[in-house]
Amino acid sequence: MEDKILLAHGSGGKLSHDLVKQNFVPLFDNTFLNKLDDSAVFELKGRLAFTTDSYVVNPIFFPGGDIGRLSVCGTVNDLSMMGAVPKYLSIGLIIEEGLLMSDLKRVIASIKKAVQEAGVKVITGDTKVVNKGSADKLFINSAGVGAVPPGVDISGSNARVGDKVILSGSIGDHGIAVISQREGLQFSSSIKSDCAPLNKLVAGMLDTGAEIHCLRDPTRGGLASTLNEFAESSGVGIRIEEQSLPVHEGVQAACELLGFDPLYVANEGKLVAVVAANGAEKIVEAMRRNKYGKEAAIIGDVVSEHPGRVVMKTRMGASRIVDMLVGEQLPRIC
């Protein structure tokens, strides 16, 4: 019989201890975690960014990623979008009784791979096991801290008239990759989640010295929601071109089939930047040098007309409003 997680693995007793000692400590091996004290104690100077997020994606493994990779990338990206350099993460696992031990190990290995890629450390963690039915396989909470370099001032409310809007790549891949695996809706597709840590992409953008006003990763609610947030917070209008939006063929086909609009489908490895016009080309060039920014392109402008609104020039040459997502298009995709 396959090894499974038991309630005793979360009891605080021997099984819990072994689980942590055998699976977490050797993998994440660092001086903070290895002590297994109640808290990790560390020093960081200057302005700090601190964020937390919980991950409940269903299914926990999907093409291009899994809940472990997602929990690292999501938190790393939330820090990066403030211009912060991500340093330390916490990982909290809520495990449903009966989860295959091999699945848990696969997720932890994936967390390790992602933290290595991002160059961050997991310095504290927690594991709980709940009765079967009280959670769905595995939920993860991660929190992270990062240092914001001096002079960096990035916020959704900083967009100015005349700025350019940059998108780092194709939209909709993550949401469609996840839904393609859902029970009752399984369709075969070659679409992979774009789930990726973007801190190095952002570092490259900051290194250009060009003015970056807003940065955000368009996760739930998709590109449309992020652009609307910028327009509203900054009190400006945003104008984008439908023809400049990269959408992979498979994503477009799946969206047609399911009645979704890629503008509203979640991404986990993309960013939208609003930057001063004079440095826009330089930033795009820098982004294209990073593997997660190869398809980076300018997709629109910040304008004084229609403040708080996003307007898109359609392929046919007309204009239409791109509104916020209302209701939910896909539940539990991250």
Binding site: T314, R315, M316, G317, A318, S319, R320
Partner: peptide, 9 residues
């Protein structure tokens, strides 16, 4: 029609 803005054209 609304999505592609045909009315305006």
């Amino acid at each position: 029609i609304a999505k592609s803005g045909l009315r305006q054209l």
